[in-house]
Nucleic acid binder design. Structure first.
Lengths: 263, 263
DNA sequence: TATAAATGTATTATTAATAGAACAGGAAAA
DNA sequence: TTTTCCTGTTCTATTAATAATACATTTATA
């Protein structure tokens, strides 16, 4: 295939486009670890760019540890030692597999304070115009590597039952239930976004990197909002897994999410 | 905040990065329609770039109809008639809400052919080394606007039961069940990635835009792989929703995903 | 050992992106 | 009105990206 890369206005450079193209081919498994990828001249010809441009893309891939190059031999797709410890979260477990994370899990509390929440948060928590919330920003680490950036809003009346230190050491759910709140139901919405500078620094990725975005709102029995979470995850260190089972229902067959095995 | 954009090697140009950041802020709702965004000089200062660079990003946003500019007034975020129809998929519905999409849903078949699948796909489908698969690439549109880019692999023995035209008109699940396959269980994995050139063109987004990535493998009763799906979704037109209910189990309380209301 | 294929390195020229500055003109507010 | 803020326009200078080419070096292989 002789696809040709374009560059028009702020469309990203050719080398960047080629870099993305190759990176995607690797991380999607289309180019398996161990595979020898085409030579620089062949890539240059295939994509209608100069060899310099190909080299830039390959250098970026090398810097990320995705490929290995040897003069006289070629370029090989690396085995990925990084993705070895990918955290997975069953949908049902609102908490990621803490058990798997074990002792290596840690939390950094970046921000902690009270104030008026942004409008979107206030609406979803079903608060009145004046109700204040506690806002906290936390970064979770596994094996000292950050993988999630969590922004939570909790109504002030609930949040006063715990302090800054407790939030830095104890899962928020435990704190909420301890305070007497009866967690009842929740909605989650999953999307994708780009890392801005703050998040990029906290998670150790480049600005503009892709991140999994998850927004969760938890309600109590009365339908009052209890927690609003906006989570950003590094896709190379975190993944959301869902197992489904085909089941028979009243109106025909449908897909039933598997309940978590509470081990 | 004084975030600064970097450009190192093939990291995309600064104007492109700023364009993506602002676009994401708009389409995610962090900058609501009607909002006046900071002036060019302020943006230039905040992101540590020159005004020319800011203008490039804003010109690109204008071209996409995301912002409106008036001399003497400023730059406003447009009301988005496009994003009005965000498609949501309950986790339980493997098919997105076709009902909501109604008559306006359409499929474009971009590729169709048989061959040896990449290793990752072969493993997940539990195929032997020689087993061939049918590979198809489809783009789903709602109201003539593309929102998903689907790459599917189906083992040859199953795929021969339908042809190219049927795939372009009938949901794959229907074709599979028609062929006598008993769909039994599935695993899904959700992540995030960046748009490469092919996908960007098909979905009408810029190269480097964030996309929701979903990989699903469906198995039959015998545990044989039946379908391997790699789906990419535009986050501004598609979202994955999960509703959970706190339930009592043997080992304590846990979160139970809600079964779909099969309406 | 000679050859082919691959990466590494270097040079030059051209084009695009960026920075920094200046100035013109529209629109709102003191 | 005057001031202020914003976009629109134009200019120059600098830096980065790209193309095209040449040559050296490493490695496997015929």
């Amino acid at each position: 295939m002789a696809t040709s890369l374009q560059v028009s206005g702020p469309g990203g450079t050719k080398s960047h486009q080629l870099f993305l193209l190759l990176k995607d081919a690797i991380s999607s498994g289309r180019m398996a670890p161990g595979t020898k990828i085409p030579g620089e001249l062949k890539l240059a010809d295939e994509h209608q760019v100069s060899r310099v441009t190909v080299r830039r893309a390959l250098e970026a891939l090398t810097a990320e540890g995705l490929i290995m190059r040897k003069p006289g031999v070629g370029t090989l797709v690396c085995e990925q030692p990084i993705g070895a410890t990918v955290m997975t979260a069953s949908v049902s477990n609102l908490l990621p597999n803490i058990s798997k994370m074990g002792e290596n899990s840690r939390v950094r509390l970046l921000e902690f304070g009270y104030g008026n929440p942004p409008e979107g948060v206030r609406e979803r928590l079903r608060l009145n115009g004046n109700d204040r919330t506690q806002r906290s920003i936390r970064v979770r680490l596994a094996e000292e590597k950050p993988f999630s950036y969590l922004t939570t809003h909790v109504p002030e009346r609930i949040a006063i039952s715990y302090n800054e230190d407790e939030l830095a050491t104890t899962p928020l759910f435990n704190l909420l239930e301890r305070s007497g709140v009866h967690l009842d139901h929740a909605t989650q919405s999953i999307s994708a976004t780009l890392a801005n500078k703050d998040v990029a620094e906290a998670l150790g990725v480049a600005v503009g990197s892709p991140l999994i975005s998850l927004t969760r709102v938890v309600y109590d029995k009365e339908g009052k909002g209890v927690e609003h979470l906006h989570a950003l995850y590094r896709p190379d260190r975190y993944r959301i897994e869902i197992d489904l089972c085909r089941a028979d229902g009243e109106d025909g067959r449908y897909w039933q999410p598997l309940a978590p095995d509470q081990t």
